[in-house]
Amino acid sequence: MQHGLSRFNVVSLTLGIAFLYTPIALLVLFSFNESRLVTVWAGFSTKWYAQLLRNEGLMNAAWVSLQVAFVSSTIATVLGTLAGVVLARFGRFPGRTLFSGLIAAPIVMPEVITGLALLLTFVAISLDRGVLTVIVAHVTFSLCFVAIVVQSRLLAFDRSLEEAAMDLGCPPVRTFLTITLPLIMPAVAAGWLLAFTLSLDDLVIASFTSGPGATTLPMKIYSQVRLGVTPEINAISTIMIGIVAAALAIASLIGKRRMNAERSQ
């Protein structure tokens, strides 16, 4: 029996990653472009990185975006996981149809209208708009993405394990924590990543729901489109990729060491 990757797997993975990374390679390349244009090469330079560090507005916006993305994706993952479990495991309960509608609807709703609706709601309850309101808005639509991913993973499992645990007298919450949660962990992690990405990329809803002093990175970048994107934005994207890649490398190293330590015990 042959384990692991077949030739077909290797080819599809390579092609897929090439497709994903061609634009990214260009983007990184043009962050070192001498000229201000992001689509025409004019020589090597690191001046955009120097300029970026001096660009307070852009750095602030990047910081705001990271905060919003981190907080909103975490809350959305907790709520979305609960919702996914409810949809896949709880069978019938009063209001179930409405509940599954509520999970689908925020994804269907065009962003402009979601933004407007939340804006009018915040105005109606006199909630001052700022970072907080952007987080609330992001949680609302990204929790649905998490719920759908978690639900699909749970549906692919039968409940024999969970039922066995319950039959052995394990209380439901315990069963959830020790059996269901580890089972759905890949989906929860995928959901968190999707929620983080959605928040980091959102322009329209953030524009509607933010207030003075709360400018996210996409808003900042979009506001510069009129006069053309400068390679500074490529530079900030490159740095972001670099940081994430470094963080991952460290995390996986620590993970490996811990695994080794556990094994040696």
Binding site: P23, L27, V38, L193, L194, D201, P218, I221
Partner: peptide, 21 residues
């Protein structure tokens, strides 16, 4: 998993401009 998602942690508009290029 991270390799698949990483490109999307760059700015959306920048990716679109790269596609235009």
């Amino acid at each position: 998993v991270v390799l698949v998602i990483l490109p999307f942690w760059t700015s959306f508009l920048i990716r679109v401009y790269a596609l235009i290029g």
